[in-house]
């Protein structure tokens, strides 16, 4: 009996220490690099969204679900993350469908330009999307699809293998959020009130290749099929960012794809005047992402577009959303 107790005690102490250091050394993404916390915030949200956005920073910076609710009573959620690549968007969508089946999935097509050999594919961005995903088949697949040459699967299972050298970079944030989390977004929308208008942009360079890769098309097909199988309306969009340039050749390919697969595509840059975006004040980084005022204008416009063209419920008056909206308004004051 005594022996058993000793064994159990040793095992428990070892496990507790391992879990503690594993957790302690992993970045928390709560006060710094908050983009890494967005994917996990979804898990404790009510799962009754009729519209779900997937994609990169062009969704989480530009679309405010709270504005869409206020304007048209739409319940929406943005499952975006920094540099979310299309193979990641597919897995994020698959994971989302375990929790809920929305009426509409909105996919921002910016990531079609990057294949797995692109220099934009990096571990740092992979971590922001994957680190805080709940364990599921989708997490296993997203790791395998995303890992760069220098990464190992095991380092996603045991973050201590990747972050062991962070011991001298630990800050108060690491201890404060050791076991708890806080929400950094409103339904996936990351508020940025700063203003940095467009003064000049780099020259639009000629590219060696404008054709999207076969690999990206395969994932776009997978997204399209997944939506179709679940009776979801897929809506492709290109957010109205001025940079990186969305070439006409890119636009044409998506337009053709949308026609061939009977899905809708909106290049929102073509609606800038209607939306009322003023790039001298409505962006926080010189035209890459919209700030709060720009995102508000875009979200009002897009909510109206969705309401007019698709069968969506008007949830105005919903208790939880009214509370959220009140909190959102206080935050943006």
């Amino acid at each position: 009996m005594k022996t058993k107790l000793r064994v159990i005690t040793i095992v428990i102490i070892f496990l507790l220490l391992f879990i503690f250091f594993n957790r302690l050394l992993q970045p928390k993404y709560m006060d710094t690099l908050v983009e890494g916390s967005m994917i996990s915030q979804y898990y404790h949200e009510p799962k009754d969204h009729e519209v779900v956005f997937i994609g990169d920073c062009e969704v989480y910076a530009n679309f405010s679900p709270m504005v869409m609710y206020e304007k048209e009573g739409i319940k929406a959620y943005v499952r975006g993350s920094s540099q979310q690549l299309i193979w990641q968007s597919y897995q994020i969508l698959k994971e989302t469908l375990h929790y809920e089946i929305p009426k509409i999935v909105v996919f921002n097509v910016n990531s079609m330009r990057y294949d797995k050999n692109s220099k934009e594919v990096s571990e740092a961005y992979n971590r922001l999307t994957i680190d805080n995903m709940k364990w599921s088949q989708e997490k296993i697949d997203i790791i395998q699809d995303s890992m760069t040459e220098d990464e190992t699967f095991l380092s996603y299972v045991f973050p201590i293998l990747r972050y062991h050298s962070r011991y001298d970079e630990l800050t108060a944030e690491d201890f404060e959020y050791l076991w708890k989390r806080k929400d950094n977004t409103y339904n996936g929308f990351l508020i940025n009130k700063n203003i940095k208008g467009v003064t000049s942009l780099p020259i639009q360079r000629r590219l060696a290749e404008y054709q999207f890769s076969e690999e990206c098309y395969q994932y776009l097909d997978k997204i399209t099929n997944l939506c179709r199988e679940n009776n979801i309306q897929l809506v492709l969009i290109k957010a109205p960012s001025l940079y990186p340039y969305w070439y006409d050749e890119y636009d044409e390919q998506i337009r053709n794809y949308a026609n061939e697969h009977d899905v809708d595509y909106y290049n929102l840059k073509n609606y800038v005047d209607e939306i009322g975006i003023d790039y001298s004040v409505d962006t926080y980084d010189g035209g890459l992402h919209l700030n709060l005022t720009g995102a508000t204008k875009l979200s009002e416009f897009f909510a109206n577009l969705l309401k007019k063209n698709y069968d969506l419920t008007d949830y105005k008056g919903d208790e939880i959303y009214e509370e959220k909206l009140k909190e959102y308004k206080e935050t943006i004051q």
Binding site: L33, E35, G36, Q83, L128, G286
Partner: peptide, 24 residues
């Protein structure tokens, strides 16, 4: 030069772009 900055989506650091008459 005409000067613009291209920030990263999440990380610190920016590319600084100086556009002159004949080179960028």
């Amino acid at each position: 030069a005409e000067y613009s900055q291209i920030p990263s989506c999440a990380f610190e650091g920016t590319d600084n772009v100086s556009t002159y008459a004949h080179v960028e």
